[in-house]
Amino acid sequence: MNIFRLAGDLSHLLAIILLLIKIWKTRSCAGISGKSQILFAIVYVSRYLDLVTTFISVYNTFMKLVFISTSVATIYLMYVKFKATYDHNHDSFRIEFLLVPCFLLALLINNAFTPLEILWTFSIYLEAVAILPQLFLVSKTGEAESITSHYLFALGSYRALYLLNWIYRYYAEGHYDLIAIFAGAIQTILYCDFFYLYITKVLKGKKLQLPA
């Protein structure tokens, strides 16, 4: 463990908590993409199957259980409890166009051709693009509530911090995984225009308005 990865995990946890607070306090999931939340749940389930086979640490097991349970809870809140506030019309991204290519790519480019490894690789590729429905929704509605933009900033920062973690681990431990690094780089790049808007607008107290 290093400071970059710990900061990344905490930023990730913060994002998930911010999302739950937004939905619970406003009793609405307006402006949130249910499709992205479904993709995140698939990412965590397919990545954390090793929960039952490998014990790394209490921290590792605890965080995996938190990520899986909160992602399922978010989907429940969006599609059941606050279903009436879910923005079906704008949340129209076809996630099969992400699921199928990621799975096929995982079959082609992976570290080992075993079920657990293929699923881990699939989850890494899927996580890189899982935010697309959410960014697509924000671009269609043209704006986002400030707490939603804080959620996106924390979520985008987590993988950016992981990039620093991988640089650190390469030099400190000689450990690296090109699949995780390339996917993490793409994932972070997808947030760049949002990061720009967040820093130039939201941090100045303005609302996140995308140029129409």
Binding site: I56, M63, E173, H175, Y176, A180
Partner: peptide, 10 residues
């Protein structure tokens, strides 16, 4: 990359 090393990340 050692097996455990790679899989100790979230």
């Amino acid at each position: 990359a050692n097996r455990l090393g790679k899989k100790d990340e979230l």
